[in-house]
């Protein structure tokens, strides 16, 4: 190793100014308003990165198709049994609601979508869906898999959308136990490493003592997430505000990295007729 001869003073000055200009430009990019950042991201995804995203989508779809037939068959059998038992239940429910003078439950249309993840820094909690505004997807729509709640749509474009999963710091969902007696707010807590991220249920009543394994569902409060989507199971107590409320760590139902296929709850489907045997699928209607 040796010291190189120095460049000319003029050249160094020009180099310094150009370098300073580029770094200044990077600081400007860092502080651009969200709308401009969104436009730049969209431009990059639709131009330079488009072929790579196509490959990503194709690989994800191939992984879906490679699922074990026996597992799919077992899932199908479970759903068939559930739907068969629900037929009479739905009718009984309708009659009871009618007798009590209750309105019909709001229904949600779901749109099936492929989940695409990139491994770039800063995109850890973010995933892409191959469904966009043309499919009825809107910002803040809930995204779920067959196991439970995955996340929420954030940005919607014509043919795709960007969503974050429950490990994102802005994720919140109103939750309840499956018997509907205990309510609270679920949010993500960071672990030492991203793999250790989990959920925490805050704001439950101090006297409501939840045990490990208690199932948590979305309560539908606030209107963002439809009622009844599984969030996870209570793991252990986290903290207690003496006499006021308790918090619990929650084992999530969905591991975001493993999701390849999801359902987007697109909107209240007041114009779509839904039979009691409606099941989740592209354009199908499920009760809220």
């Amino acid at each position: 190793m040796a010291v190189q001869p120095r460049e000319g003073g003029e050249g160094r000055k020009r180099d310094f100014l150009l370098t300073a200009g580029v770094i200044l430009g990077s600081l400007i990019v860092l502080n651009l308003p969200p709308g401009s950042q969104r436009s730049i991201r969209l431009f990059l995804r639709e131009t330079v990165l488009s072929p790579l995203l196509e490959i990503n989508g194709a690989i994800t779809r191939m992984r879906e198709r490679a699922l074990d037939f026996n597992v799919l068959r077992a899932q199908m059998d479970s759903v068939t049994a559930l739907v068969a038992s629900g037929r009479t239940l739905a009718e009984e429910n309708r009659q009871l609601r009618e007798a009590l003078g209750l309105l019909e439950r709001e229904r949600h249309r779901v749109r099936a979508a492929t989940v695409m993840r990139t491994g770039t820094p800063g995109a850890e909690s973010v995933f892409l869906l191959d469904a966009g505004s043309g499919d009825g997807v809107r910002p803040f729509n809930a995204v779920a898999t067959e196991a439970g709640l995955l996340g929420q749509v954030q940005e919607v474009f014509a043919d795709h959308s960007v969503a974050f999963d429950w490990s994102h710091r802005d994720f919140r969902a109103s939750a309840m136990t499956s018997d509907g007696r205990t309510h609270g707010l679920v949010e993500a807590v960071r672990g030492g490493f991203r793999e250790q991220d989990r959920l925490i249920l805050r704001g439950t009543a101090y006297l409501a003592d939840l045990g490990p394994g208690e199932e948590l569902l979305t309560s539908g409060r606030g209107g963002t997430f439809p009622r009844g989507i599984r969030i996870g199971w209570v793991a252990e107590p986290a903290e207690a505000s003496e006499g006021w409320s308790r918090s619990y760590y929650v084992d999530p139902a969905v591991h975001p990295g493993a999701a390849t296929h999801a359902l987007v709850y697109v909107e209240g489907a007041d114009t779509l007729a839904a039979g009691p045997d409606s099941v989740a699928g592209p354009g199908r209607v499920v009760p809220r």
């Binding site: 770039t120 973010v126 892409l128």
Partner: peptide, 15 residues
Amino acid sequence: LEDAFSVVSFGANVF
């Protein structure tokens, strides 16, 4: 290019 998927801290990789 790396920030094309960064929703929260867009520009961090650029800088």
